[in-house]
Simulated scan of single mutants.
Amino acid sequence: MKTKVLSLVTLFMLSVVTVFAAEKTETFEVKGGDCEECKTHIETTTTGVEGVTSAVWDVETKELTVVFDDEVTTLDSIEMAIAQAGNDTPTYKAPEEAYSALPECCQYEKEE
């Protein structure tokens, strides 16, 4: 009997956590070149952040739409990871070393 009650309580607690897990969608600019290699690099970097479930970067508009669990990560952490990989975001500028490591086709005009 105790096992059944404990199982039911555990199941209830898991369902409550699932209900309150918040999936969030944000769109912001990410500097990059005009090629599919840039698109792959930015999207792969973004989806590599724990908690990110989807990332789509538009080559023409330079906008990244990212879907993530805000219980696991933050927009700030996502932007920081992208900058560390070589691409500027609204909040973070890529370190020169990371930017220089990008393929020439993926390098973009850096703002001072």
Results as ranks from 00 to 15, higher is better:
residue 43 E to C: 09
residue 85 A to L: 03
residue 104 E to T: 11
residue 77 S to Q: 12
residue 112 E to Y: 10
residue 34 D to K: 09
residue 59 V to T: 09
residue 15 S to Q: 11
residue 64 L to C: 10
residue 65 T to D: 09
residue 110 K to V: 13
residue 27 T to H: 07
residue 65 T to R: 09
residue 96 E to Q: 13
residue 47 T to A: 04
residue 61 T to Q: 13
residue 5 V to H: 07
residue 90 P to D: 07
residue 45 T to H: 00
residue 74 T to D: 01
residue 26 E to K: 14
residue 68 F to Q: 04
residue 99 Y to T: 02
residue 58 D to I: 02
residue 25 T to R: 13
residue 26 E to D: 15
residue 70 D to L: 06
residue 61 T to I: 10
residue 70 D to Q: 11
residue 23 E to P: 02
residue 32 G to N: 00
residue 91 T to K: 15
residue 44 T to A: 13
residue 90 P to S: 04
residue 86 G to A: 06
residue 62 K to V: 10
residue 108 Y to E: 03
residue 80 M to E: 14
residue 98 A to D: 05
residue 53 T to K: 14
residue 47 T to R: 14
residue 40 T to P: 00
residue 77 S to E: 14
residue 100 S to V: 05
residue 108 Y to S: 03
residue 16 V to F: 01
residue 79 E to D: 06
residue 58 D to Q: 01
residue 67 V to I: 12
residue 80 M to C: 04
residue 56 V to H: 15
residue 68 F to I: 08
residue 55 A to F: 06
residue 78 I to N: 11
residue 3 T to Y: 00
residue 39 K to A: 10
residue 110 K to P: 06
residue 33 G to K: 00
residue 13 M to G: 08
residue 106 C to K: 07
residue 93 K to Y: 12
residue 49 V to R: 08
residue 4 K to H: 10
residue 26 E to G: 03
residue 7 S to R: 12
residue 75 L to P: 04
residue 87 N to F: 09
residue 14 L to W: 02
residue 20 F to P: 04
residue 90 P to K: 05
residue 52 V to N: 08
residue 71 E to R: 09
residue 108 Y to H: 02
residue 33 G to P: 00
residue 63 E to I: 00
residue 12 F to I: 13
residue 14 L to T: 07
